[in-house]
Simulated assay, not measured.
Amino acid sequence: MHSELSPAVAWSQRVAVAALLGLIALGLAWELWLAPTGSGMLALKVLPLTIPLAGLLKRRLYTYRWVSLVIWLYFIEGVVRASGDGGLSARLALAEIALCLVLFTACTVHVHWRVRRHPEGTA
């Protein structure tokens, strides 16, 4: 089904999955243990991040494309909380921003190299 992966595609997949898992872990730790805001209901924000995991692992091009768009919602949350919160919460928000940028970069590299290698099968 899949031909041999180029190093850029394989690298980008590993980085994207790692960044996504990092965002999930960060979101849970942040809202449940490190700097919770109330009853912990904000931890539910990580649920949408679990949806694309299977698609990233299976290298579904569509998943990489839409993750690179949806991740900006989490980036915006990080920016708002980094500028509005203080202390540990602000530092966690900076980590969220960094993970979002890593995930976005990995997804766009993945799409770029896949489209470049097989442009006819990517529509």
Rank of each mutant, 00 (worst) to 15 (best):
V15F: 06
V15R: 05
A16P: 01
A16T: 13
A18M: 05
A19E: 12
L20R: 11
L20F: 12
L21W: 05
L23V: 02
I24Y: 01
L26H: 01
L26S: 04
G27D: 02
G27C: 04
G27S: 04
A29L: 11
W30Q: 06
W30T: 07
E31K: 00
L32E: 02
L32V: 15
L34Q: 07
L34H: 03
A35H: 12
A35V: 10
P36K: 02
T37Y: 06
G38S: 14
S39K: 06
G40Y: 02
L42A: 15
A43M: 03
L44N: 02
V46C: 02
L47R: 10
L47D: 05
L47W: 08
T50D: 03
T50G: 10
T50K: 04
T50A: 15
A54W: 09
G55S: 04
G55Y: 01
G55E: 09
R59F: 10
R59Q: 12
R59A: 12
R59S: 14
L61D: 04
Y62Q: 11
T63I: 03
Y64F: 15
Y64C: 08
R65A: 15
R65C: 14
W66G: 04
V67R: 12
V67K: 06
V67I: 14
V67L: 12
V67P: 08
S68R: 10
S68K: 06
L69G: 14
L69S: 14
V70Y: 10
I71E: 00
I71C: 01
W72I: 03
L73H: 03
L73A: 15
Y74V: 02
Y74G: 01
E77G: 10
G78I: 05
G78N: 07
G78F: 05
V79D: 09
V79Q: 09
V80A: 13
R81Q: 09
R81G: 03
A82L: 08
A82K: 05
S83Q: 13
D85S: 12
G86H: 09
G87S: 01
G87Q: 02
L88A: 06
S89E: 02
A90V: 05
A90D: 01
A93F: 08
L94Y: 07
L94M: 14
A95R: 06
E96V: 03
E96N: 08
I97K: 06
L99N: 09
L99H: 04
L99C: 09
L99R: 04
C100M: 03
L101D: 08
V102H: 05
V102Y: 01
